[in-house]
Design a protein around this nucleic acid. Structure first.
Lengths: 218, 218
DNA sequence: CCTACCGATCGGTAGG
DNA sequence: CCTACCGATCGGTAGG
């Protein structure tokens, strides 16, 4: 309420702005995330919001960072305990499907939307999104290579090809959920992934259920 | 130059606006397609542009319609001569990959971008996009069913599943081309599609090349 | 973190 | 199809 606040209070305000910003941006886009709308939703003044970031682009980058932390918590972390290789690859895919199915962001996958919006606009926003996506792709790639070395995937597996196909399924799932509101899509995605990874569909579904349960409990 | 123009001139102006609007919207999005920017690019006044449509939403719908005609010309028409069933399905996929590879729209697939932008915003724009996508999906579905009845696809083929996976590959290809500027992606997409349709990769690539040649000639 | 501004641009209208 | 407007909103700044 007062102009002078403690460091802890300011940090909390910043976290509130980012939480609201992620929700807004996932629905309206990173450009549609305007300072005025954010301020109205938070009951703050525009300059109060902007003061935490200095400029809109910095706000956008901070929101992207916050969304990346959410994605890491929802996908990488649940799969973090799995053994590297096919097990971890399968766990990552299951957690990813679950993240999309549960609509962690109201507008669907934050990064798919952000990538589609900024893939034609050079700049720091585009570079940051592309960088994050490539880090996640590289992690998938590593697991595929390990699984191949372990003999859990065919020896002639083209790792880049498999990563491309797995990513495509995730994009297809997000699209079907968001545009067509197709609730059968998660099952289709699991089936497609099960075939790509040579894993029985039931195992993928089971792993997804386990991930959800773990998130609910812990 | 003058306020009074013939009907033919007015129609040409409208076509010019739509052509420019498709380019702009594929890069900046359907919301970033502003009347002022369009007017500046065309050397017209804002009210001169708006007069052809009445309101921004009508302009957006007209641009979507124009883009749908382009898509039909680029994908459905080249595959129009193929025999229904697996042949036509393969031809549709090949033309679709070619349409993405040639970057018919500077911002990548017009409808993937539009769907990602509007999938959370209820209204006529969203409904129109979803309707067009579902028409194209239904065409794919029909070809899969025919191919299955012909014995060109396994008898237990789940048509909805196959359409989901084919669409996913297209989304993956668009994403790889636009965000990662990955020029190897069309080959990966053809390979994935070849496996999904049980068609040798070379045949898909060949059909794509034929489609391109036909477009250049005719 | 606020009030009080700024110039620019938005979609749209009036009138010719 | 133009000029000349309108109120609303944009990102951002000054000053406290």
């Amino acid at each position: 309420m007062s102009p002078r606040r403690s460091v802890a209070e300011a940090r909390q305000t910043r976290a509130d702005i980012l939480a609201c910003g992620m929700r807004l941006a996932s629905v309206e886009g990173l450009e549609g995330l305007t300072i005025g709308r954010l301020a109205a939703e938070l009951g703050m003044s525009k300059s109060g919001v902007l003061g935490h970031f200095g400029a809109k682009e910095e706000l956008q980058l901070a929101v992207i960072d916050a969304a990346a932390e959410v994605f890491a918590r929802e996908v990488a972390e649940p799969a973090g305990t799995a053994v590297p290789g096919l097990r971890k690859l399968t766990a990552l895919c299951a957690a990813w499907v679950s993240y999309l199915e549960r609509r962690v962001f109201p507008g669907g996958c934050f990064f798919t939307a952000a990538a589609a919006e900024f893939d034609d606009r050079p700049g720091r926003v585009r570079d940051t999104i592309a960088g994050l996506v490539s880090v996640w792709d590289r992690d998938l790639y590593r697991q595929v290579r390990t699984a191949t070395a372990d003999g859990d995937l065919p020896a002639d597996t083209d790792a880049d090809q498999l990563v491309f196909e797995v990513s495509s399924v995730m994009l297809g799932l997000n699209n079907a959920l968001q545009l067509r509101r197709d609730t059968t899509a998660p099952a289709r995605a699991r089936r497609a992934l099960g075939r790509l990874l040579g894993t029985p569909v039931l195992m993928v579904a089971l792993l997804a259920a386990l991930c959800q349960a773990r998130l609910r409990l812990g």
